[in-house]
Design a protein around this nucleic acid. Structure first.
Length: 809
DNA sequence: CTTCGCTAGGTTTTT
DNA sequence: CCTAGCGAAG
């Protein structure tokens, strides 16, 4: 094998195949390269055969990439190798070993939604009102207990007090419920293997024997359970190789334990340590900025990345008056990038919280920029998808109570809570489970009024589906299911909202069909895959669009151009972390991760006013920005600000801090004139027009009458000027102002659009008002309104049915 | 049992 | 601001 493409430390790390190995790999230092070469090397040197290798990652995407790259290196299949996520590989193992644990092979994997329902159920049973104990908190407590490898008994003994006792009760009941439902939650997928190995040393021996080489990616994110299971598996052959970067540990809140990587040498005596400090990704400027912040942390291996990539550009600071203007500034830079021949897929926007995507998204629509949001509500978490999956899960595992309760009255079939409760009690007395009970007419007869018939009908539905499942293909089952439940009609009845849901159902059908054609694992395999997909897995890097995602989701990815947005104190770093040193360290690492995603250009952005829960609140720039050496930043770009300077923003900032009770002393920065003077133009600035570039109709900020928005409603005359300016600023780069119009609408007229065909971002044509872009939709059916930003008259709110809008293709 | 209307809470991050 | 979840009424 040719290792010439690797630098000396990388080569060392590849060749050190025996014994425990820790590879400290900084961001962009070629970590995956080393890992894949190492595996290829093991194979080629005949030190390992494919099935003796276990390679664990955190995301499917990382696993897939690793498998592909190994396959390229060794020029063959990696089928026998276990390369995958902790969760999926252990799920696979647990299915094989299910009997030893008293589970059925067909166990269901409960996601956090399902967990919550079980918690709810438990709390009801124990008559603990959710008023005093919040189910989400309870779920979190159970999860962290599991992450710390505490079973219900150990957990109960670990502390005292009223709350803890209640939590222990719920945890105990929760565990029982899951077992009865033949279900495991995410945490169980890591914990149950430990139980298995502890109670069945012979099973442990089988896997120890098989996996002579254990490799773990992103080791800094492992929790105690993962540490333990890796220890058990690798202890026989002592060949464990972990790769990670303590500076990129950002999952502490989920139980990741930084000590795993910091103490590796103690846990695995004789470990060899390799440090990869040459960065191949970013410019010096970017690395230094990132380093400036993360190096403030106490708990880290001292190290500093270096690169031969050169200084690069300074980091522009973009300052928006509010989040919409922040977004507009970002869009402007992206349009510039595109004009210079750059692709949209080069660009990523990163933010701390998913909620921030909204303002960005609106700006992207306004500017006609294609984008993809990673994360947020996931496909498989949409209501309609969960409904249908619940049916399928119930078929795969008839004991799955959560799914049963979800589907029994979905769509409505007249089986309400009362009936369900009665039936449950009845079946319990009769010693039969729900699905069996429903098939026994003589039992049902005991229930009042129409209930027996409705329940029996439901029983028949499940029976028919089960029969078909035994005989036919999953897609056929889904089809029958849709038909019998009249599910599509049910969605149609929802009107406007139902449309995209129907599309989602079609997408689910397509996904299932695709799976069916490419896998032999059938419905069970599909359900498992679906349960374990993550946000990033759905990320599509082929299409040409800007990527929007949280910093967490961005870990492991890289982009030529990166915008880190929302750099405000209290948002990034998040308010809750300000008074906790450990959490603040994690925020710094998060910032480090964010910056080091950038290859060529990094932009740091913040807004002076940010609306949260619809309420405007002032914000101070993130303290991270103060730490970055001045010479790395380019402040000249900061403010093409809307006039008014300090007006509003900072004053509101001050008052909102005071009201929120987050005074100085708890770590929140307060307004002070000196700090503020760094960021504003001190006097009201006549908005500085950005340089006029070809391709734009010039004079961006002049409010020529043609582009003036409609006069605002009377009542707030004082704001008029500002609103017009603001509007102009927001729209100055909109596609309609380009010298070359996007398209000539007259030649591409569509039919008058059905209101339900409209969507935000759609280009439309109105008979008299001309071209516009749909901004927003509200309401249902005949009442639905549509906001359209017209080229000629600005934003108009129209009644969708009356507007006679045509879609411009 | 369903539907409507109100309120409270939510925005950290996810396999 | 928006939504989900709950209570009251039909």
């Amino acid at each position: 094998m040719n290792l010439d493409g690797l630098n000396p430390s990388q080569q060392d790390a590849v060749r050190a195949t025996a014994g425990p190995v820790l590879i400290l790999a900084g961001a962009g230092s070629g970590k995956t390269r080393v890992l894949t070469h190492r595996i290829a090397w093991l194979l080629e040197q005949r030190q390992a055969r494919p099935w003796e290798i276990l390679a664990l990652t955190f995301t499917n995407k990382a696993a897939k990439e690793m498998a592909e790259r190994i396959s390229l290196l060794v020029g063959g299949s990696v089928r026998d190798m276990w390369v995958g996520t902790f969760h999926s590989l252990f799920a696979r193992m647990l299915r094989r070993e299910a009997e030893h644990l008293g589970y059925g092979r067909n166990f269901t994997i409960y996601d956090s939604d399902d967990q919550l329902k079980v918690v709810h159920d438990c709390m009801e049973r124990l008559s603990l009102k959710s008023g005093q104990l919040n189910p989400k908190r309870v779920r979190a407590a159970i999860s962290s207990a599991k992450n710390a490898m505490l079973d219900p008994e150990t957990f109960a003994a670990s502390d005292s007090g009223f709350i803890h006792e209640r939590l222990s009760e719920i945890y105990r009941d929760y565990a029982i419920q899951l077992r009865q439902a033949n279900a495991m939650d995410f945490d169980d997928l890591l914990l149950k293997p430990i139980d298995l190995f502890r109670d069945h040393p012979d099973r442990l021996a089988v896997y120890q024997d098989r996996f002579r080489f254990v490799l773990i990616d992103e080791y800094q994110d492992t929790n105690q359970a993962q540490f333990e299971v890796a220890r058990l598996l690798a202890q026989a052959h002592n060949n464990i190789c972990v790769v990670g970067d303590d500076d990129q540990s950002i999952y502490g809140w989920r139980g990741a334990d930084l000590r795993n990587i910091l103490d590796f040498e103690t846990s695995w005596p004789g470990a060899q340590v390799f440090k990869l400090e040459q960065n191949y990704r970013s410019t010096e400027t970017i690395l230094e900025a990132a380093h400036a912040v993360v190096s403030r942390n106490q708990g880290r291996h001292p190290k500093k990345l270096w690169t031969q990539n050169g200084r690069g550009e300074p980091i522009p600071l973009l300052v928006g008056e509010d989040e919409a203007l922040e977004a507009a500034l970002v869009c402007r830079r992206i349009l510039e990038h595109r004009e210079q021949g750059g692709a949209l897929r080069d660009v990523a926007l990163l933010y701390r919280t998913n909620a921030q995507s909204r303002a960005l998204e609106e700006a992207f629509m306004r500017h006609g920029l294609r984008y993809q949001i990673v994360g947020g509500t996931r496909f498989y978490e949409r209501r309609e998808i969960k409904d249908l999956l619940a049916y399928l899960r119930l078929l795969a595992n008839p004991q799955d109570t959560v799914s049963l309760l979800r589907v029994i009255n979905t769509p409505r079939r007249g089986i309400g809570d009362a009936t369900v409760a009665q039936a449950r009690a009845l079946f319990q007395r009769a010693g039969t489970n729900f699905l069996e009970g429903v098939q026994r007419p003589e039992l049902l007869a005991e229930l009042g009024r129409g209930a027996p018939q409705r329940l029996a009908e439901f029983g028949k539905l499940i029976r028919d589906l089960t029969d078909l499942m035994a005989a036919g293909k999953p897609t056929e089952v889904l089809e029958l299911l849709l038909e019998q439940t009249r599910y599509i009609e049910h969605l149609e009845a929802e009107g406007l909202e139902g449309k995209p849901r129907i599309e989602n159902v079609r997408e689910l059908q397509a996904a299932l069909q695709h799976y069916e054609e490419n896998s032999e694992l059938g419905l069970a395999g599909f359900l498992e895959e679906v349960a374990l997909v993550s946000d990033v897995d759905g990320w599509d890097d082929k299409e040409d669009h800007v990527t929007l995602m949280t910093v967490h989701s961005a870990k492991g990815l890289e982009f030529p151009v990166v915008f880190v947005t929302g750099l405000e104190e209290g948002l990034f770093p998040l308010a809750g972390a300000l008074d906790d040193p450990a959490q603040l360290e994690e925020e710094r690492r998060l910032f480090y991760v964010a910056c080091t995603r950038a290859m060529r250009r990094l932009f740091l952005c913040f807004a002076r006013v940010r609306r949260r829960y619809g309420q405007a609140g002032g914000a101070m720039p993130s303290s991270f920005l103060d730490i970055i050496p001045e010479e790395l930043l380019d402040r000249s770009a900061a403010g093409r600000l809307l006039g008014g300077g300090l007006r509003g923003g900072y004053r509101e900032a001050q008052s909102s801090f005071d009201e929120g009770g987050r005074q100085a002393g708890r770590g929140m920065r307060r307004y002070d004139a000196e700090a503020a003077s760094q960021w504003k133009p001190a006097v009201r600035v006549a908005p500085t027009p950005p340089p006029v570039r070809p391709g734009f109709a010039g004079g961006e900020l002049e409010l020529d009458p043609e582009h003036t928005p409609p006069p605002p409603r009377p009542g707030k005359p004082a704001k008029l000027g500002a609103d017009r300016e603001r509007d102009a600023l927001l729209n100055q780069y909109s596609p309609f102002r380009k010298a070359e119009p996007v398209r000539d609408p007259s030649s591409q007229l569509a039919e008058i659009a059905d209101p339900s065909d409209l969507y935000p971002g759609a280009l439309v044509l109105h008979e008299t008002l001309g071209k516009g872009v749909v901004i927003h939709l509200t309401g249902f059916g005949g009442e639905s309104r549509v906001s359209v930003r017209f080229e000629s008259v600005g934003v108009k709110k129209l009644i969708a049915r009356m507007a006679k809008l045509r879609l411009v293709r």
